[in-house]
Structures are given as C-alpha cells and as structure tokens.
Simulated scan of single mutants.
Amino acid sequence: MIIDCAYYRDGLRQHVEAMSVEDAATHCKTGGFVWLGMFEPTADELKQVRDSFGLHELAVEDAQTFHLRPKVEPYEGDVELVILRTARYDDEREEVDFGEVSVFVGPAFVITVRQGVASDLHGARIRLEQRPELLETGTSSVLWAILDQVVDGYGPVVAELERDIEQVEQTVFAGAVAPTEQIYSLRREVTDFYRAVHPLLAVLATVERGARETKLLPYFRDVHDHLVLVNEEVAAQRDLLTTVLEANMAVIGVEQTKVSVRQNATIEQLTILATVFLPLTFVTGFFGQNFGWLVDHIGAEWDFVVLGIGGLLLPCVALFLWFRRQRAVRRQAT
C-alpha cells in the first residue's frame, strides 16, 4: 500500500496530495527528488515501482524478506538499499514489537518499504519538511531523517526494558524465586533488540562515508552518538540479565536444598519411630503366641511385669542409649 508519494525541489514539497507512481518517476528526471513511502506492499505494487524506477530485481526481492540484522547493499545506478530494524514497546503485552524499513536511496528518489507495526515514518517526513535547508541537500537528508526517527524510537524501548529488568532483579535479589521463563523471555527480547541495534553501527558508518553532502555529516554523527549510547545500554542489559538468570538459578538451588533438608528431617523422624516400634512389635508378638510353655509358666502378676513390661522397657532403654551415642558421634564429627 502506498502511504505517500511527494516530489521535492528547492527544499519544498511541490504539491499537497500524493502523486501516482508514474508521475513520480517522471518528476525524477526534472530535478529535485521523489520520496515514495509504502507499507507492506503487494507483489504487484513492488513490480510497478521496480519497473517505474528501474530498481534491481534482487534489491526488490530483498525488501520483501524480513531480516534479523540491518545492512546496506550497493546496486547499479548509484542506488543503495539500506535495511533498518525498528522497535516499539507494547505496554499492554509488556513486549517489544519489531518492524523493518527498507530504504532505496538514489540520486533522484527515495523509496521506503515498511514492514510491521513498529515502522511508522510519518513523523520523519513531517519533521524534514519543516527543515527546507536540509531538504535542499537531496536524498541523503531523507535517509538521515529516517535513521534519526528509528534511533530515537529505540530510547523508549530501552527505558521500558530497563524497568522490566529492575522488577525481575528486585524479586531475585530479595531472595524470592522469579519465574525462569519470564527471565528467558526478557533476555530473548533484549538479544533481539541488540541484533537490531549493534549492526546498525556499521551501516551508519557506511552511510556517513558515502554521504553526498558534507552539510549532513554533523547530523549523521549526532545519530551515531545516540546509537552508540543505545548500543552500550542494550549490551549492559543483556549482561545484567545473564547475571540475574544465574542468581535466580542459585536461589532455586537454595530453595530446593531447604526442601531436601525438611524432607530428610521428616524421614529421619519416621525412621526413629519405626526403629522404636520394631523391637516392641517383636516382643508383643512373641508373648502373644499361644505356646504351651508361655501358657504354663506365666501365670503370676510378677511374671507378667518382668517378662511383659520389662521386655518392652529393655529395648526402649537400649535404643535410647544407642541414639544418644550416635548423636554424640555426629557432634564430634562436625
């Protein structure tokens, strides 16, 4: 879909309404330049633009593919294809949305192909149209405006990611266990963001070297400075999330150790209880048998006290002394 198509000359837009692709291609031959903006165009629309402006088929094919990293590719006819990754933080889902902008830059035209919801360039066009002294420099000014818009859009994303990281960090270092899946998801977002930011440094350096107007060099350097700052912050966030993940795993290990200690204590108590009842069960079971000797020789009360009650007390005393000795041995070992 064609969003806007305008012809610029002498630093001014020459008409209000958007022109057709054919008219734009004709104006390219009369001085000035054309800026054609497209959003998720169809194959037929891209073919029309390719035929009208003489774009290389590989460049057009490249603009239809979603890339993981920014890049710049030169083509015949002094045309460059600059691919940028855009980013926007969604407050409702608390996730980062990524988009892409493919920019065809020639001496007399700029064609932008946007993919994804995070790739709006309307603000860049409006701001550049308010700077006629920059528009007079030609198509390089459009590329600067787009780069400036994209890099400025990284700032809010960095701030929101920093807020999410601080929340997870506070949870982990407070001794509580943060959801590991949440940390992994956040680290994946930061890694994807780093892939969008870091390669753009090389792209921007290439664009600076090939800038057609020296008047724009300070503006490109300003974008470069902002990009370096964003790159350092994103790299620091990625390293911090690695530390948070390791700390979270340590907290999980401590919690599992506590559970194991409690389970061991319970098992030890049950073992002691079973050990106590084992000889008692044996004694009561033995004297509960109807052997003739037991029936004939145990008839008095003292026989019952000595053999019955004493038979129960004796193993209890023996077990008490044995447990006491084992506890003293453990204390000496520690």
Rank of each mutant, 00 (worst) to 15 (best):
L204T: 06
D91R: 15
V283K: 01
D44C: 01
V105D: 01
E160R: 14
D164N: 05
D90V: 09
V234D: 00
T242E: 11
E94V: 04
P315R: 02
F39P: 00
A236P: 07
M249W: 07
Y8W: 11
L161G: 10
L312P: 03
L81R: 06
E181Q: 13
E94M: 09
G175C: 03
I252Q: 13
D222K: 10
V82M: 09
A108Y: 04
T281E: 05
G37E: 13
V151E: 00
G37V: 07
P156H: 04
G308N: 04
R13V: 02
T65F: 14
F277G: 00
V34F: 00
D23R: 14
I298W: 05
H67F: 08
I309W: 04
G32Y: 13
A205R: 10
W35S: 00
A118E: 00
V177K: 15
A6L: 13
V72L: 07
V203S: 03
V21R: 01
D192C: 14
A202F: 12
N290P: 01
I83V: 15
T257D: 13
Q256H: 13
L312Y: 01
A205L: 04
E100R: 09
Q170V: 06
T275V: 08
E22F: 08
K29Y: 10
T266Q: 07
S52G: 03
V306F: 05
A235F: 08
Y219A: 02
V177T: 15
S102L: 00
V142G: 07
S185M: 11
A24P: 03
H224T: 03
E22K: 12
V150N: 07
T257S: 14
A118I: 02
